[in-house]
């Protein structure tokens, strides 16, 4: 790890000013991803600006009936918050499915959105990786990729986004708010993560030097009946190999509203819009759920060793939507 300067910010504008346009400076939140990447040599900042003490750690109602979640709210506090648990239970579940209790107490919402892929080629600086060193190649495509992307990938990168939280946020139309050098701005989560294309090193729409200040969740009655289901290679404390955030509103046997987002299938949380369009207005039964999954997964382009993810996601969609419908009928 390279030597670095450390400064502590006390207000948002000051933090952004401190960072300035310096490409060698990083904001330090919980540090659970950044410090790890600094140890492995993936990140080598010359300066850290600590933002953990900024007054961004509140969860508050918004005038439109949604919620505003501060960027330095820890994952632990987010999942424990009664309004999150009541109104967006899948978000609480997604956060609880991530990492460990210790890491959730450190990791922040802003940092979680910006966490880097856990692809084993990305985290090992002795290996090529287009995301880390543009143009160096993607050994995962011909190598170990059983937990890599089936949707939205390119010949340049097949890594998946590791966040659970972001999957639930994607399902609920979250908006990311930031403060850039020229003032505040925002980006719907749907547009926040950039397509992979031939620039896998460019991951988000966050302007250079900008600081995420908060995330807003619009009101979504359908979210009150929602679930996050994560599949991983041990029962806990592991990244997903496939996950699903789902919300369903059924009346008189017909789907009124539905939200679906997939995790661990793409470079970003994958909002399943095509699936939602199949669901809404259709009879609430397993056939509809399977058709919805198929509509979304038609775009899947699995690699030789990750084709199972298509089946996995399809099965998760059918199982979780069936559960939500059954519970609604009770």
């Amino acid at each position: 790890m390279r030597e670095f300067d450390y400064q502590r910010a006390s207000d948002v504008a000051g933090a952004v000013a401190l960072l300035g346009a310096d490409p060698d400076t990083r904001f330090l939140g919980g540090g659970t991803n950044l410090v790890d990447l600094m140890k492995s040599g993936v990140e080598r900042p010359a300066r850290l600006v600590d933002i953990r003490e900024l007054p961004l750690d509140e969860i508050e109602p918004t005038p439109d009936g949604g919620l505003r979640i501060g960027a330095t709210v820890t994952n632990g506090d987010l999942a424990a918050h009664p309004e999150i648990r009541r109104r967006y239970p899948a978000l609480a579940q997604a956060v609880l499915a991530g990492a460990s209790g210790q890491l959730r107490n450190m990791a922040t919402v802003g940092g979680n959105l910006l966490q880097r892929t856990r692809c084993g080629y990305f985290t090992d600086v002795t290996k090529p990786c287009n995301k880390r060193v543009p143009g160096s190649g993607c050994p995962a495509i011909e190598g170990e990729h059983h937990n890599h992307a089936i949707l939205g990938a390119s010949g340049h990168c097949v890594a998946v986004h590791p966040s659970d939280m972001a999957v639930a946020l994607a399902a609920f139309d979250a908006v990311v708010h930031f403060h850039a050098a020229d003032g505040p701005g925002q980006s719907p989560l749907a547009d926040f993560y950039l397509p992979v294309g031939d620039t896998p090193h460019r991951e988000t729409a966050l302007p250079p030097g900008a600081l995420i200040t908060h995330v807003t969740l619009p009101p979504a009655p359908v979210a009150a009946r929602s679930r996050y289901r994560k599949v991983r290679e041990r029962a806990s404390y592991a990244f997903a190999i496939g996950s699903l955030a789902a919300a369903l509103d059924v009346r008189d046997g017909v789907v009124q509203d539905a939200r679906l987002a997939f995790g661990a299938v793409a470079s970003r949380p994958w909002r399943a819009g095509a699936a939602e369009r199949v669901l809404i207005g259709a009879p609430a039964d397993a056939g509809t759920y399977a058709a919805a999954a198929d509509a979304e997964l038609a775009a899947a382009r699995p690699l030789p060793h990750n084709g199972y993810k298509v089946e996995l996601i399809r099965n998760l969609v059918v199982a979780v939507l069936s559960e939500l419908a059954e519970e609604a009928a009770r």
Partner: peptide, 27 residues
């Protein structure tokens, strides 16, 4: 592990458990 992947370095920070390996001392 020194990477937040085992929990052996768990301490309590402000009463809450956290891994000390990913916590910079200066912070």
């Amino acid at each position: 592990c020194d990477q937040g992947q085992c929990g052996a370095c768990t301490v309590l920070l402000d009463g809450r458990r956290a891994v000390a390996c990913l916590q910079l001392a200066v912070a």
